[in-house]
Every structure is written in structure tokens, then in C-alpha cells.
Design a protein around this nucleic acid. Structure first.
Lengths: 113, 113
DNA sequence: TAGATTTATTACCGTATAGTTATACGATGC
DNA sequence: GCATCGTATAACTATACGGTAATAAATCTA
């Protein structure tokens, strides 16, 4: 029995999966997710840690909020963002392993005697 | 000890991770990967299965080839493409689970009495 | 050699989006 | 009320990218 079963997927399913991956396809959003590994933070904190402009950070956070990767908690003047979908870390781990494999392979084909 | 360790990542690392996710962020490329689950196929076959235009299919395949997700084998008039990075299936499984969770949650908050 | 077939490439168009600036909104404090 | 602070939004620009059509390139066949 094969490791991966091939299910029937509709066009809408492909769209949803693509949209989900797209949320993780931008360096700034990855930085934000990475910064939120410590726990919830305010927009100002995230602006400081990522080095981005406040408007841009807010925009990306809004996107992550809409797709359900982060949550927002408003208190006083501040908005506290936090990760709600922990699978993003598993996804990044898988991707990083895949990138390493690729780089190793490239290195091998380059330096082989 | 936390489940996810926070490593130091450079801007270049975030770029590479983002680029990798971007390869999976388009429905047509997902369809191609999905179609290749059965094993290697020619461009014509993939055009038939995805319903896309030949030029578009070729362009997306080239992109998947460049990031190392698929491999190409030329024989006669045909180019045979196949999956080389099996982690894409794990990634899609994770994403699908995440989407399901999200939809379940949305459904719950909608229909709760 | 000429023609047919498969794939790759080029050019173009329209749309989407990241980054930036400026401004609006909402809450707090004087 | 008014000023201030943190955040969100609007408007703009530049660029990236997907889809499409046309063409080129490579291989096979008659």
C-alpha cells in the first residue's frame, strides 16, 4: 500500500491549498511567524523585531489573521498577536529539511571528484 | 523543553523558505504535483489531465524543476516529469489538515446554539 | 529534405501584491 | 475638549506573475 493516497480534489480544493501556502510564501510574514514563536506580541514589538514599516507589518498581520494562522487580542491601545495554527512550524521544518537536502545535493554535484 | 526550537534565521533563509512555499502556492502547480503522484508523465499527458494550455503547463513545470520538486527526463520527442521531493505530499497533508481544522472551527462558531 | 509532432520560449496583457507614505480611527491621559 | 499614542486603512507605485497566443527548437517520419 502506497505511502501517499491520491484523493479526488476539486478545483476549489486546489485553490484553498494554494491560498494557504501563499500565506507562507512571503519573507515578511515568515519573519512575523518566527517572531511570534516566543508568544504573543504587540504590533510595535513586531515592527521592532522585523525592521519593517508599521503599515506593512499591520497589513501582513491582517492577512495572517484572515487565513487563521494568528489570533488578535485587543487591549487598550495595543493589539496582541499570537500563533493559533501550530502546524506552520511543522511546515517550516519540513521545508527547511527539503532545502537542506537540495543544497547538499547541489554541493555534491559541484564538488564531486 | 519546547516542541519547536527557535533557531537564528537570516534574511536569506527567510527568502529561501518563502520561495519554496511560493512554488506550492499556485493551483496549477498543485494540480501538476497531484497528477504526478501516479509516477512520471509527459507534458502532453499533464496538459490533458490539468486542462491547462501547453505553454502554461510547460512554464509551471520549469519552475517546479528549478526549485527541485520535479525532475525531467527527455526521450525522443517527449519530456517525462516526475516528483523528486516527496516532502511536498507531507506538506500538502499538513495544509489540508489545517484547512479542515479551520473549516470545522468556522462551522462550530456558526452553528453553535 | 519536407512535414509532423512534442516541448520550450517569447511577447503581451491584465491582475495581484509588496512596500511606502499619509491619514484615519480608537483608546488613553491631561 | 484636546493631545498623544498605537494600530488600521487608503492611496499610490513598482514589480511580479499567471494566462494566452504565437513562434522557435528539437526530434521523429515519410
Amino acid at each position: 500500500m502506497p505511502k501517499y493516497r491520491k484523493e479526488n480534489l476539486s478545483d476549489e480544493a486546489f485553490d484553498m491549498i494554494g491560498e494557504r501556502f501563499k500565506a507562507l510564501a512571503e519573507p515578511m510574514r515568515l519573519k512575523l511567524i518566527y517572531a511570534l514563536m516566543d508568544g504573543e506580541k504587540t504590533v510595535s514589538q513586531l515592527v521592532g523585531e522585523t525592521g519593517g514599516f508599521q503599515a506593512n507589518v499591520s497589513k501582513h498581520l491582517k492577512m495572517l489573521l484572515e487565513v487563521g494562522i494568528v489570533a488578535r487580542r485587543k487591549q487598550g491601545l495595543n493589539s496582541y498577536y499570537s500563533i493559533v495554527d501550530q502546524t506552520v512550524f511543522d511546515l517550516c521544518d519540513l521545508i527547511c529539511g527539503s532545502i537542506e537536502d537540495r543544497l547538499q545535493a547541489d554541493l555534491g554535484s559541484f564538488s564531486r571528484s
